[in-house]
Design a protein around this nucleic acid. Structure first.
Lengths: 207, 207
DNA sequence: CTTACTGGCATACACTGCGTATGTAACCAA
DNA sequence: TTGGTTACATACGCAGTGTATGCCAGTAAG
């Protein structure tokens, strides 16, 4: 395996990257369904042939786009979590990082709105196990292990939490830019109250 | 307007209802994308012409299906809420009714999984304001007004709660029938803990 | 330098499925 | 019975995906 790539390989990689970039823009602005592969190809002065050479299907192209976006995002959120002094602060930092991430309209639209549409709910959810859903599960699992949260089944907890946090991110992304600062604080408040309700020391009076 | 309908009208209504029923089954088992209007029509020994006579588009057919399902469901959940002695018990009853509803695979798949795919997230969410989302907003609004929950913006709260509850219903619907009883209790527990965290008397220590 | 080969992409075609335009027969009203 | 309307069927256009094939630049071997 040559360590330095041939010109052909470099060109090929460049077009592949350009296709992913163009597809990202199209999917983010027009949505998955309304984006034709013709459009994507035209954006980089190529034809659909190029697309089908690099990706086996439209869905596969979307998956490549999603992996890039989620890879970056998960990295950011994860490092915010790890940088914090303790688990609780880490969870808060991760939440903040996530909400910040959702202020990027490309991220929120492609990952959270188009994702399930393009890949089907199952496929999307499965992919998410490597990224946002997986991160949330990890954090909650450690909080449970440390006794920060009352004992409860991780899977069910993660399902609900993932969806709740996603809704906040989604609502944030949809909002007008002028409202985003206020809304971000609101969602944050609601989510933190909810998480606090799950703490090990929180008394439960309800049936 | 004749109070007794002509035979033509009766026949027409019957086929319309049959189309909705057939479409409901198809959408629930094969999903929106994989269902062709040809299939739906064939199921009732008709052609696509009949479909396009009664509905302006595939999406419109789906909306009709969704309205029927959500109408029934919202009615059940609402009456469970109203039958309870007080607001808190009402909220619990509504939650129970919703989780029960999600045990119906048709309801959960069509409304919660295919809905956003078929109508786009916006269209779906907008329609939901008449049904599940609207009901949740109503209940939470009354709880806020009664001081049962700590003061917080209704809209953000409803967004997060709607999504959290939806995730529970969704997870429940996906599960193997043997696990559903256990899972139902798990989700219920998690959700009630979260709601309890929002109560007016819950102390908050987090930042 | 030539030759043979491979990889990257373009072109052309098949197929599916939605939507629309047009046809037709049953029904109803005058 | 006749004229019009309603409920559907039939036929067509069109968009968009996927596939099969062709072509040319780039690379490697002799």
């Amino acid at each position: 395996m040559p360590v330095v790539k041939s010109r052909r390989e470099q060109y090929s990689e460049a077009t592949r990257a350009a296709l992913i970039a163009a597809a990202t823009r199209r999917f983010a602005t027009d949505g998955y369904a309304a984006t034709g592969l013709e459009d994507v190809a035209a954006d980089i002065q190529a034809t659909r042939g190029a697309v089908y050479h690099h990706f086996s299907s439209k869905k596969a192209l979307f998956e490549a786009v999603l992996e890039v976006l989620e890879g970056q995002s998960t990295e950011r959120i994860g490092s915010a979590y790890r940088a914090a002094p303790d688990r609780w602060a880490g969870a808060m930092a991760a939440l903040d990082a996530f909400l910040d991430q959702c202020l990027d309209p490309v991220y929120s639209r492609v990952v959270w709105r188009e994702g399930p549409i393009a890949m089907g709910w199952h496929g999307w959810h499965q992919t998410e196990q490597k990224y946002a859903y997986g991160t949330i599960t990890l954090i909650l699992g450690e909080m449970l292990a440390d006794g920060l949260l009352a004992p409860m089944p991780l899977r069910s907890l993660a399902d609900v939490a993932f969806s709740a946090i996603g809704a906040a991110g989604h609502g944030l992304a949809e909002a007008a830019p002028t409202d985003q600062t206020r809304l971000r604080a609101e969602y944050r408040d609601v989510l933190i109250r909810m998480i606090t309700g799950l703490r090990g020391d929180a008394e439960q009076t309800a049936t």
